[in-house]
């Protein structure tokens, strides 16, 4: 039978994690429990659901710290996140539907870091930093360096994800987000895009552009970011579209085609840099 542990605090969780590398760590379970009745049970489970040390949203001077245990319902409803980190709130609203949003957590999404993880392009565009911890101590990793491949990350075997620290874009930065799924809700993404664009009037000073479901992991598109710098909105859209063309290699799968993904990714990116 599976051994069950619900840590009282982070410290107990970290010790358990250090001792039992083969135990499954879970929070809401929306990924790990899929078809669980037909798969072998893990030897042990560390249940982080509602662990108080991971369930917080702290609005700080220039950033917002979101605990790994925060659910998408909480993200979507949080007034500061809605106001300051719009792409993340919008992404939260389109993760699965009500039931999944109530259980799915930020920590789960970044822990799995699936290429179709709905919050991930937003975290990239907002230049979030992850805080992870082990009994060895805490460290921070920029999210753009987090993923190492298809559903693999820099999380060490003894570490837990603590929080995402998300810088609040300043007043000259406009943000965008769009998910294109297989249907209008409760869907897996075919293409996702997020952007944070810093403007001087209508000239792009700098930009962060991220795409999901386009590569084996969520990615920043630096070719686009470079191409739009110094361009006026509108013209920048064309430049972004052109720059994106050579920068991505999407694939065909059961949900969509490479051609479609490429074309829609271009449209989304161009739209982010359009005038209105």
């Amino acid at each position: 039978m599976t051994t069950y542990l619900r840590p009282r605090d982070l410290d107990e969780g970290l010790h358990a994690r250090a001792e039992h590398a083969d135990w499954t760590v879970l929070a809401g379970g929306t990924d790990l429990l899929v078809n669980a009745n037909h798969r072998a049970a893990p030897v042990g489970m560390i249940d982080l659901w509602r662990l108080a040390d991971l369930c917080f949203v702290r609005v700080e001077k220039t950033s917002v710290a979101i605990g790994a245990g925060t659910t998408w319902t909480e993200v979507e409803r949080h007034p500061a996140i809605r106001a300051k980190l719009a792409p993340l709130a919008l992404a939260a609203r389109e993760i699965g539907a009500l039931q999944i949003q109530a259980r799915g957590t930020l920590g789960g999404n970044v822990g799995t870091s699936s290429p179709v993880g709905d919050s991930l392009p937003a975290l990239l565009a907002l230049d979030a930093e992850l805080e992870v911890a082990s009994v060895r101590g805490h460290r921070r990793v920029p999210y753009r360096e987090w993923c190492t491949g298809y559903r693999t990350t820099h999380l060490a075997a003894d570490e837990l994800i603590i929080a995402a620290h998300v810088p609040v874009p300043d007043a000259t930065t406009r943000t965008s987000w769009r998910k294109v799924g297989t249907r209008r809700a409760q869907s897996i993404s075919k293409v996702m895009g997020a952007a944070a664009i810093t403007l001087d009037g209508d000239v792009v000073v700098s930009a962060r552009v991220a795409l999901g479901a386009i590569a084996n992991r969520p990615i920043r598109i630096t070719a686009v970011e470079d191409a739009v710098r110094g361009q006026r909105l509108g013209v920048a859209g064309d430049a972004a579209r052109a720059a994106l063309r050579g920068a991505i290699q999407p694939i065909d799968d059961v949900r969509s085609t490479a051609t479609y993904r490429r074309e829609v990714a271009e449209n989304l990116v161009a739209r982010f840099f359009s005038v209105s």
Partner: peptide, 20 residues
Amino acid sequence: TVILDGEAVNSCLVAIGQCH
């Protein structure tokens, strides 16, 4: 769908240990 701690959730995606 069931209501767990005041939220609507899919009971196929919750482990019983988590419900203690």
